[in-house]
Design a protein around this nucleic acid. Structure first.
Lengths: 116, 116
DNA sequence: CTTGACTGTTGACCATGGTCCACACCCTAC
DNA sequence: GTAGGGTGTGGACCATGGTCAACAGTCAAG
């Protein structure tokens, strides 16, 4: 399908799809028409887009997702490697939570001081 | 003092100080020399910079800090207003923590699924 | 009088994840 | 043949918080 239909199918926009394609997160086929070529996306790319969206929801950046997909393509994305990546992200999330908690604690102290 | 000394005093860089000054977070005096004027910072600005740094550590953006400082200058930054701002930030921090926790939960589920 | 240190202005650049715009081409329907 | 809808490319632009580089003026020391 062409980009418009694809974007519609995954609930995104053509611009975002082009952006992901430029980043190599999605792979488009080509259809020539006159002197022009149009990008064509198949069902695999729909799955891929859904996967990307899920990873994003888990806190991965597009860059990290791209690396993961490349590892997958290269065949180096073993179970243990996946485990490793997930756990690393888990740790970084925990770190961010801890940092926010620190700020929260300080804020609470301030609120109590000025509110008391 | 001139910008270099000031930046040194607050443990920052000249570029950052200029950046904050452009944003109106810091206010510089002027000293003319020849056809040029140099920015001059006094002790008040040191305190101000320290305050900004503390706010940043609490999770406020420079924009929010600027608004707070302007309210302070306008005399509308009452105790209750401060309380309000701190509590709003507290809420937004809690929201972010909750969002990260969601991601964490999903990640843990994934880790356990693939690890089991 | 020249060198070096300091400063100012302007504007580009970094990452992040897009969004939007103009311009040009393609195909179909009328 | 022309309008309308779709598409592609290139580039600008948004927020966020700076960072860096080029160019030019100032000032003190040697």
């Amino acid at each position: 399908m062409l980009i418009g239909e694809f974007a519609e199918a995954v609930g995104s926009t053509k611009d975002t799809v082009r952006f992901y394609t430029r980043l190599g997160l999605l792979v488009a086929g080509e259809r020539t028409a006159g002197q022009r070529t149009y990008a064509v996306y198949d069902e695999d790319q729909v799955d891929r887009f859904v996967f990307i969206a899920q990873c994003k929801a888990l806190g991965f950046t597009l860059d990290e997702i791209g690396n993961g997909l490349r590892e997958h393509e290269a065949g180096t994305l073993t179970e243990s490697r996946q485990q490793e990546i997930l756990e690393a992200k888990l740790r970084s999330i925990e770190e961010r939570i801890a940092a926010l908690r620190q700020a929260e604690k300080k804020l609470r102290a301030k609120v109590e001081r000025s509110g008391a």
